[in-house]
């Protein structure tokens, strides 16, 4: 086992009824990498996230995280091992404020138990304070400090996308999966966000797998890109290699590559 490989997707096939959403996928992600996963609509990108994070169990194949098989575990168990994610169709905790959203995701790092919470003892107070401080720090990193007490759904759209990332960071992941974090943002916002993602990666020594529909967005920050089409990995390599790969060009042919996508799509 190569210790530099953090995540290995080992020949995974994901089948829904008659449809093979992902077929025989092999993918390795090294520690500290920022890898882009791109492909046209319906290529199976989000499905990859779903079986890595345990939303689905792969039909065939293994998923190894830090050398240990995690396929078939329940999502919360995988999150606890250090894999967290954001959602393409923003799934914030609607009734809670931004800070609570982050706190919820930090929940398995709480040291005070249920009895401490019910007794409101010192251990609970200290734990709670520590968690709040860290939540506020994360909100700061993502530029959300002024929104800390605002209900998540009352946030402007771009801020909601950032809150998704802050929340995913709260679980102290080693691998962060970002599902189209720039969807619905305008070109400037999306460039800003990409820079922020790169900062976050360095600051927290993270490994990131980033799904993006729009090739151009990821070209700037990912040094390695994998391309999916109809569930099959058709190319993998540096942005330059991907740009000139005829199969990639063919897959994207007829697709308007740079159209900003509507909210919620």
């Amino acid at each position: 086992m190569n210790p530099d490989v953090l995540l290995e997707v080992d020949r995974v096939t994901m089948q829904f009824g008659g449809l093979k959403a992902v077929a025989d996928l092999q993918l390795e992600i090294g520690r500290g990498e920022l890898v882009g996963l791109i492909g046209p609509n319906g290529a199976g990108k989000t499905t990859v996230f779903n079986f890595v994070t345990g939303v689905y169990a792969p039909t065939v194949g293994r998923v190894l995280f830090e050398g240990r098989a995690i396929q078939g575990l329940r999502p919360h168990a995988i999150a606890k091992r250090g894999v967290t994610r954001t959602f393409q169709n923003i799934r914030l905790f609607a009734s809670r404020c931004c800070r609570d959203n982050v706190l919820i995701a930090a929940h398995h790092h709480a040291t005070a138990g249920l009895s401490d919470a019910l007794l409101r003892n010192r251990r609970f107070a200290e734990d709670e304070r520590g968690m709040r401080d860290r939540a506020d720090e994360l909100l700061g990193v993502m530029g959300l400090t002024e929104w800390a007490d605002t209900r998540a759904t009352e946030l402007p759209y771009g801020q909601q996308r950032r809150l998704e990332i802050a929340r995913a960071l709260a679980g102290r992941p080693r691998l962060l999966l970002l599902d189209e974090p720039a969807a619905g943002l305008n070109p400037q916002e999306s460039e800003q966000l990409m820079r922020l993602i790169e900062d976050v990666r360095r600051r927290f020594e993270l490994t990131i797998l980033l799904i993006e529909h729009d090739m151009k967005v990821v070209m700037g920050i990912c040094r390695r890109i994998a391309v999916l089409d109809y569930g099959i990995k058709i190319a993998e390599g540096t942005p330059d290699q991907i740009r000139s790969d005829p199969r990639v060009i063919e897959a994207y042919l007829g697709e308007e590559v740079t159209v900003p996508r509507a909210k919620g799509s």
Binding site: T53, G54, V55, R74, P75, H76, A77, A79, K80, T84, R85, F87, R91, L92, F93, A94, S95, R96, D100, I104, A105, H107, H108, R167, A168, A170, G171
Partner: peptide, 16 residues
């Protein structure tokens, strides 16, 4: 509360 608001997100973020 997280379970009430979005069970799938809660689970993905480490809530059993």
């Amino acid at each position: 509360f997280a379970i009430r608001d979005d069970e799938i997100a809660a689970e993905a973020l480490g809530v059993d």
